[in-house]
Computed example of a mutant assay.
Amino acid sequence: MFSIGSPAKVESNLALKNIPSDMENVLYLASFAANSHNAQSWKLRISHSNKTIELHLDEKRLLDVVDPENRELYISLGCYIESLQTSFQAYGYEMITQDIAPNKENHYQVAIISYKKKENSKPNQETIDIIQQRHTDKRKYLSQQIDSKTITNFTKRYKDMSYYQAGSSEYNLLKDKSIEAMTEQTSNIEFLKEQDHWLRFSNKEVEEKKDGISGDMLGLNPILKSLYYLTTNHQNSTSQTFAKQSIDTLKNQVENSSGFFVITGNQTISDWIRVGRETQRFWYDCVKEKIAVQPISSIIEVPSIKEEVQNRLNLNKDIQMIFRVGYVKEYGENISPRRNLEEYISVSD
């Protein structure tokens, strides 16, 4: 039981041909970006001589059922761009991003990134720590309310952001509709099959695949993680018994929060990427304030429920992100597995 419930030991290989070690560290840190299902749906092509990076959506790592327009994945790429920029800055690099309109012909390239090492620069450990601490926290949060000045600062700093405090009618709407949306989703066998593809049910599976959602990421303590791995597998994770457990877990989460932050935006790829960059910056700010964060996506993934919620909240743009937030006793750090760099990064001279 102790062995099963112990943390997975994922060792990511950072080695890349012709890339200096500090740059390898930058690229590894960048992969700690928030991303849907921990699918890590990014692909990079680095020109070592030109000091440029082409960033592409990885067509082999799509979420066709919950994300048929790739909205979540483009938001994830926006998170990656912001994470990459922050990582470059932490290691003394300058970075300039040129946005590209992705299409099939350019292999869904979203940006070309130029980078340059600044002279006599040293790593900024404080920034590195913030990058490594940022994570999704699915545990129960404390009942303490978020500081009002913090809420005001966030809603002023980030475009199209609103906050709904626990106990308000808006909060209850988001809570109830999240559960309703999850209930509808889990009645769909195709949703359950896609979810199963990204779930990991043993430390061995986590250590081999280095992606997806592990028991550690679910916030389970060693005993609960052991029971989870012993009783759940890829054969029964598409059952209605497992679906009911998922709904019960979501209920417990949304009923134990300080509130919800919501970001809205336009339904365009460029705005999805913008939302991703703001999401990553917002999350870093939450790390600094020791505010735990969990994205709640079920409402957004069920169009009819999303439209109803938008109308009832009087929002004039589409909901792009919903964040459950609150304080926790111990903040923790990012324990999500990350792939070897060479699996998604190619380097040319």
Rank of each mutant, 00 (worst) to 15 (best):
G167E: 14
A30P: 11
E289A: 14
T86D: 14
E207Q: 09
Q145S: 11
T155S: 04
L230K: 08
E180M: 15
T97E: 07
Y344L: 09
T127P: 11
V275P: 00
N236K: 10
V309S: 13
Y171S: 10
V110A: 04
F191V: 06
H107G: 15
E126F: 07
N13C: 11
Y229G: 03
E11H: 05
N252C: 05
T152Y: 06
R338Q: 02
H135F: 01
E105S: 08
R274A: 06
C286H: 00
M217K: 00
E11K: 11
K118V: 15
C79A: 03
F88Y: 01
D99T: 11
Q89Y: 09
T155N: 05
N316S: 15
R45C: 14
G215D: 01
L55M: 07
D196K: 13
G5S: 01
G265T: 01
S237W: 04
P337A: 00
Y108E: 06
L218G: 00
N314R: 10
G212Q: 00
V293D: 00
E54H: 10
T279Q: 14
I189D: 10
S162Y: 14
I128C: 13
N13M: 05
R312L: 12
M95N: 01
E180G: 05
Q145D: 15
C79I: 03
V254Q: 07
I299Q: 03
S246I: 12
F282R: 00
Y80M: 01
D147H: 13
T232H: 15
C79L: 02
N50G: 07
S148V: 12
N35T: 00
A15C: 09
D58L: 06
D176W: 07
N252T: 07
M217H: 00
P102K: 09
